[in-house]
Structures are given as structure tokens and as C-alpha cells.
Design a protein around this nucleic acid. Structure first.
Lengths: 205, 205
DNA sequence: TGTACATCAGTGAACGCGCGTTCACTGATGTAC
DNA sequence: TGTACATCAGTGAACGCGCGTTCACTGATGTAC
């Protein structure tokens, strides 16, 4: 068996994932800075000391959760911007995509929205870094579009940041809405995005 | 001496304020959900049990902090919208006002940004209620402007929400910026707001 | 103004409890030959 | 294939500590007359 496979490695990965899953569930109702190490190990069903075999501290587990929550979204985010169609269609698809993502991964979205301004510095930094990458990727996509002729990189970055912040805010609004409110939340989110797109088309001249 | 004045009442108010001040300072580096009752009383310099003379729990202290942080801002927020001048001037004044406010009350701003999505339900609800009031007040101001002719109340509320969210986000960005970055942050915030205003002027037709 | 009683903000001891971290350990898995 | 040794994920006891909450208290302030 090679170094990186084997029964032992596989089991370790499974336990590590159990820590991430348990923590994420506990974080639905509290912030990371109040999450206890013993609380997590209890939820997983292992001894408290087992935690240290996987993470040096709860803050490090938090950073791993950021990667899990946001690391895989980069293609999805910039893909949304580069889609075919007029800007109205793109807006509708973006909002639908956000709604679907929130439904599929509510705990991940909640975690990111909560800890983006939360009390754990390392986690805040990890989220900020991911958000900056999203913004840069969206800027790169925008710059490829004909509508961006005449725009400076600076202005494109400003617009990209506006879109990215709007996406997270929309996700967070869905999260707090009751099921019967989702449709209305989606419509408002679409109109916000559409108004921004109109601003974009009249930005110059 | 009347019921509500007197040495005793005044002293009680002073102690209560000392709790709020001490908590706010401790909250610069952690979230409310991990703030300890003993931690606060220690910072104030009173016995742990004194806390209960003022608040039933840390969550209630948090709700009081929301009132302190946001309760007095209503005239300022809607005043910004109703100011004279063209929309470019209004944007500049709004961003300057936000910058000044963040400089004067950084801990209050941090607290609101952090706990808006934080782990304490009662505090999240209190912040949401204040934000909804801001949005409604901004909507009312917008509806008085000639630029709003032909707008539905629904669309005005959408626009007001966009402005209010943008204000809090701008405040939070100032908060995290190093001093030498403030000017740049301000310029980006102005351009975001200006783009939204352009979208507003071309929304109909 | 003076006196007798009521109120109540803040005290300090005590409680049981769960916390994070240390340490030496066990036993299944992995490796060398 | 078999054997002897190494690795290391997870254990369980133990530690000192700070937590939130209770309770009966004290003594300055307030009130009635």
C-alpha cells in the first residue's frame, strides 16, 4: 500500500470529516468563538483528546470549514457571470443558482455569513481571501464582455465586488426567510441585481 | 426627590453604562455568544452577582447594545437621503458621514456588523428590526424625491434596502481597513453608490 | 428637622459543572526483510 | 508467506480553572410621619 492510501489513512479522513460535519451542525445555533472542543468530540463520539490528532485548535477547524464551504464554488461563481443570454436572463439564473445552493448547503452558507465578521481572526482572514478571489475572478469574466469596453480595471473590480457582496447577501437573506417568503426574496434579489446591471450599462458617458 | 431621579437611580444608571462600555470593549475581539458574565463584571470591577441587578442575561445586554448602537442613527440616515444637492454630492456626503461615524464609534459598528449574523437570536432580531426601520425610513425619503415619480412602493423599498445594506457594508469595510487604505475604500464606496444611483435614474422606461 | 422603617444596588461565599490540555497507554495497521 | 519491529489514531485518567447561578447579607439611600 502506498503512503497516502491504506485503511489507516482512509479511517483518519473519515474521522476528520466527521469533525467537520459535527462542527458545522453545532454552528447552526452558535458562533465559532463559543464552540467547544469537547462539544465537537462528544457529537462525533470520540474522546476529547482525539481532536488533536486532526486539528491544533477549533480555529484551525474553522479555517478547514471555510475551504470546504467556499473552495469549490469558484467555477460556479465565474461561470454564472460568463453565461450566455441577455443581462436579465443572467440575473434570473444567478438568483436561481443561489437559491438552489442555499437549499443544498444551508449550514455552510450560514457559517460563512456568520464568521465573515465573526470573532475568530484566522477564519475571518480565510473568508476574506476567498471573497477576494471570487471578486477577482468575476472581474476577469466581466472584462471579457463587450459591455465592459472602455471600463478601467479599477471600475470593473468595483462592479465585481458589488456583485459578489450582493450574492452573499442574497444567500443570507434566503437563509433567514421562511419557505413561503422565498419567492418574494428571490424577486427582490433579482430587481437589485437588475438595477445594478442598468447602472453598469449607463456607467460611462 | 422624585421616583426616577435621586442618588441611587443615578448610580444605578452609571453602573449599567459601565457594563455596556466594558462589554463593547471586550466584544472588539470576540463574539457575544462567547462573552462571559464574569468577564464583564471583572472588567467593570464589581462582583459577578451585581450583573443580575441590571440584565437577566448576556443576551439582554446585547439587545441593549443594539439600541445604543443604532437607536440614535435614524435622523442621520434618512437625513442623508433627503439632503440637498445632486446625487453625486449626496453620495460623497453619505460616504464621508459613514467614515466619520466609524471613526467615532468603531466598537459599535463592529458589534453590529458582527452580531447581525451572529449566534444570539435575540440580538440578531433586534438588529434586523432596526435595519428594517432604516430601510422603511429611507424608502419614505426617496418617495418624496422627484426622481421617484412612477416608482412603485415595492421598488422604492428594494432600492432603499440596497442603499442601507451598502451603508453597513461600507462601514464594515472602513473598519477593517488600515489608515492608509481609508481614502481608497471611500472612493470605491462612492463609485458603488454612484453606480446604484445611475441604475436608479434609468430604472423605468 | 428628626426618627423609624423600607428599599435595593452591590457583596462574598459556596455549589456543581464542563472546559482545554497533559500524559502514558493500547492495539490495529504499515513496513522491512 | 511469515516474522519482528515501527507507526500512529484513538483512549482514559487526571489536572487546575473559570464558569453561571443561588443565597443570605450589608449599608447607603429613600420615604412616611
Amino acid at each position: 500500500m502506498s503512503h497516502s492510501s491504506g485503511v489507516r489513512q482512509a479511517q483518519k479522513q473519515r474521522t476528520r470529516q466527521a469533525f467537520l460535519d459535527a462542527a458545522l451542525e453545532l454552528l447552526e445555533e452558535q458562533s465559532l468563538s463559543s464552540l467547544g472542543l469537547r462539544e465537537v468530540t462528544r457529537a462525533v463520539g470520540v474522546a476529547p483528546t482525539a481532536f488533536y490528532r486532526h486539528f491544533p485548535s477549533i480555529a484551525d477547524l474553522g479555517v478547514a470549514l471555510v475551504e470546504e464551504a467556499l473552495g469549490g464554488l469558484h467555477p460556479m461563481i465565474s461561470g454564472t457571470v460568463s453565461e450566455a443570454g441577455d443581462s436579465g436572463e443572467r440575473v434570473e439564473r444567478a438568483v436561481a443558482l443561489i437559491a438552489r445552493h442555499v437549499r443544498a448547503y444551508p449550514a455552510h452558507v450560514r457559517f460563512v455569513a456568520r464568521e465573515r465578521n465573526g470573532g475568530v481572526q484566522a477564519v475571518r482572514a480565510a473568508i476574506a481571501e476567498q471573497m477576494d478571489r471570487f471578486t477577482e475572478e468575476v472581474r476577469a469574466e466581466l472584462s471579457r464582455q463587450p459591455e465592459s469596453a472602455g471600463w478601467s480595471d479599477d471600475d470593473l473590480l468595483m462592479l465585481a465586488g458589488l456583485y459578489v457582496d450582493q450574492m452573499l447577501m442574497t444567500a443570507s437573506t434566503f437563509l433567514e426567510a421562511r419557505p413561503e417568503e422565498w419567492e418574494g426574496v428571490g424577486r427582490v434579489a433579482e430587481r437589485r441585481m437588475r438595477l445594478i446591471s442598468i447602472g453598469r450599462h449607463h456607467w460611462l458617458g
